[in-house]
């Protein structure tokens, strides 16, 4: 799909002539690309200072026993120096193999994986279905589109409040279920139903992004392909299978990857829906936040260690995903 032509020079990439030495290459590269680097510099600086440095520092914190009782702090007029010490990999060992590691890490881990898989699958299928419907010639489709994007346009914490009203014990959903003589579960207390509710709310919030992205992808599929398929007598299903699906491949692989990353790190929905009342419905991100900021004493080191583990999981996953895409000769849209 990619036309491998260097857009700056018009040369074909890949078979460049043997370059000069490293120093000379750097110098030439600098002369040719200085403005590219200048354009990237602001991002590089901001990300370097506010993301990479904190990451390195956070990595260091995970090797210590820092918590809110032994870090630098000021009580009244007294400035107290940090007294935490280096303890090596003990935090990781404790999280992964320590006593009650199953309750603290592995149960959350399994739930996080299930949460990510279910949410992204629902986002994608519902989003694709709606996008296909909106891509037809249909009266009032602009209006439908406007309404369907609304869950994305309203800030998450507002909509989550709305859902809390609806899911509360005497809320509208349980009243409606009662009226239909169906059992009315306690959505915000029972573990299973908490998880169900979290997935439901997150699906509601996440579908619009998928829908709009896939709609954009659908609209960029060349109409003549459908025409040709129809001439050859392809049925609707065959047109979907052999024209639409391949046409959406690059968009799909990108939005699915983004969706997985965002859902895996989805903080707002679960945190706002349950606060600290649902220890078993916490995914790893909210659990790490709880350890570091939601309890006393705040356990910074463990919290950061969870964060690093999360990051490691995502990076491993992404590299496998990338390799899998490469094997199928698909391209991420980057």
């Amino acid at each position: 799909m990619t036309v491998a032509i260097d857009r700056a020079t018009g040369k074909r990439r890949g078979d460049r002539e043997p370059g000069p030495g490293l120093g000379g290459r750097l110098k030439r590269g600098y002369h040719k690309h200085w403005y590219a680097y200048a354009m990237i510099a602001p991002v590089a600086v901001v990300l370097g200072v506010l993301v990479l440095y904190p990451l390195v520092y956070g990595l260091y914190l995970t090797l210590t026993d820092a918590n809110s009782l032994n870090t630098v702090r000021t009580i009244g007029v007294n400035h107290i120096d940090a007294t935490y010490k280096f303890i090596g990999l003990d935090n990781y060992a404790d999280i992964l193999w320590g006593p009650t590691a199953y309750d603290r890490f592995w149960s959350h881990f399994v739930w996080t994986i299930a949460w990510t898989a279910v949410c992204v699958a629902l986002h994608y299928t519902v989003g694709l279905g709606l996008a296909l419907l909106l891509n037809q010639k249909l009266r009032g489709r602009t209006l439908y589109r406007l309404i369907l994007v609304l869950p994305w346009a309203v800030p998450t914490f507002v909509t989550v409040f709305g859902w809390r009203f609806m899911l509360a014990d005497g809320g509208i959903i349980n009243s409606a279920l009662d009226a239909l003589h169906l059992p009315s579960p306690s959505w915000l207390e029972d573990t299973f139903w908490q998880r169900f509710a979290a997935i439901m709310v997150n699906t509601w919030c996440g579908v619009p992004f998928m829908m709009v992205s896939l709609l954009g992808g659908l609209q960029s599929i060349d109409a003549s392909l459908y025409e040709a398929a129809e001439m050859d007598g392809a049925s609707a299903w065959q047109r979907f299978r052999y024209v639409t699906v391949p046409g959406l491949r690059t968009v799909s692989s990108t939005v699915v990857l983004l969706g997985i990353i965002w859902t895996f790190n989805q903080f707002a929905v679960i945190f706002l829906l349950f606060g600290n009342t649902a220890p078993d419905a916490q995914i790893l991100v909210t659990w790490a936040y709880y350890l570091g900021f939601g309890q006393q004493p705040r356990d910074f080191a463990q919290s950061a260690a969870y964060g690093i583990l999360l990051l490691a999981i995502l990076i491993v996953f992404t590299s496998f995903y990338r390799r899998w895409l490469n094997r199928n000769e698909q391209q991420l849209a980057i």
Partner: peptide
């Protein structure tokens, strides 16, 4: 995009 809030917050 993958950095969880928890790692970055304190630093």
């Amino acid at each position: 995009q993958m950095f969880p809030v928890a790692v970055l917050m304190v630093p």
